[in-house]
Design a protein around this nucleic acid. Structure first.
Lengths: 168, 168
DNA sequence: CTAGTTGCAAATGTTTTGCACAAAC
DNA sequence: GTTTGTGCAAAACATTTGCAACTAG
């Protein structure tokens, strides 16, 4: 079982590596997909995409907006949402709806994974499990349904929060 | 693997049996839980709870509102939402957030189950699978986390929609 | 030049809340 | 007679959209 780990909240915009691609490589892909569709590369669009790829974690629109504002204070929420939707259509982004009011956006990686979400600190841990994938297929067969996608989410306390006192 | 099946949309308010309890039995439990908490039984509250228990499927607030209006046209949305929250606190209701904008509410049953959701007709099929529960525990152990709850959702086309032409 | 893009403000859809009145206990 | 509950309208919240001005190709 592979696992990744990332914290929410302030975090240096380090070089995010998801699978093999760097943020710069993903920008090239983004531009290519835009061209394929006859769409344009623009300043705001590039700023948002680059920040998104560089953050490379499960950001909310709000967090992304705040980060983008730092390098381009002119962009509005509408462009954030429009660009997120565009990145999704370009298959460069996954939209997740955990048990919060807002969506979280994740850089699309090579293989499917599921999530553990810490209910105290918000940390999101990714994991992969081939057994789960296999069982899902078998359930689908039993039900006679055709699967397009699926999600599995575990909720609870992460290793750190487990041992710490109830925070505030 | 056990499975249940239910369709969305108009449906006679049949006697819903989840596990062993009838709607009437659940009303008694509801009243008991209210008393424990020093809360009151009221007309609107009972109407909403009864309709919810009798429908016994994954209703949205909107659908429940419409059904309740039929027997008590006086109730407002606020009371619907307040009563849903109350039923949840009384452990008589589960709130689900599938990939739609709105929440769906389900009568709390005896054992945990997961869901398949048809992306065309909205049908929700419940299923139970002990292997999944076992694997979840093993994943939690690997991650060193403490689970409180989890969800697994499968999305796709149900057996019926699979063979039918793409509807309208 | 012209289609696509932006920012703003306003609209949307779902859920929550403030408040004066009404109903339980 | 308190305390809790209700309906209404307004607010809150995340997200989307209309539109006039702008910009990339």
């Amino acid at each position: 079982m592979a696992q990744g780990d990332e914290a929410r909240g302030p975090e240096p915009a380090t070089v995010g590596r998801r699978g093999r691609s760097t943020a710069a490589e993903r920008m090239l892909t983004f531009h290519a997909r835009l061209r394929e569709r006859g769409l344009k590369s623009t300043g705001p669009r590039d700023d948002i995409a680059r920040v998104f790829f560089e953050l490379s974690r499960h950001v909310s629109a709000e967090e992304l907006y705040a980060e983008v504002k730092k390098i381009n204070p002119h962009v509005g929420y509408a462009t954030i949402y429009r660009t997120l939707k565009l990145l999704k259509e370009c298959n460069l982004l996954f939209e997740r709806h955990f048990e919060e009011g807002q969506a979280r956006y994740e850089v699309a990686g090579e293989h499917h994974h599921d999530h553990f979400i810490c209910e105290r600190c918000g940390r999101i841990i990714e994991f992969e499990n081939s057994e789960i994938e296999r069982i899902q297929d078998s359930i689908a067969k039993h039900l006679g349904v055709l699967l397009t996608h699926h999600k599995m989410e575990l909720y609870g306390l992460c290793a750190e929060c487990r041992v710490k006192p109830p925070a505030p």
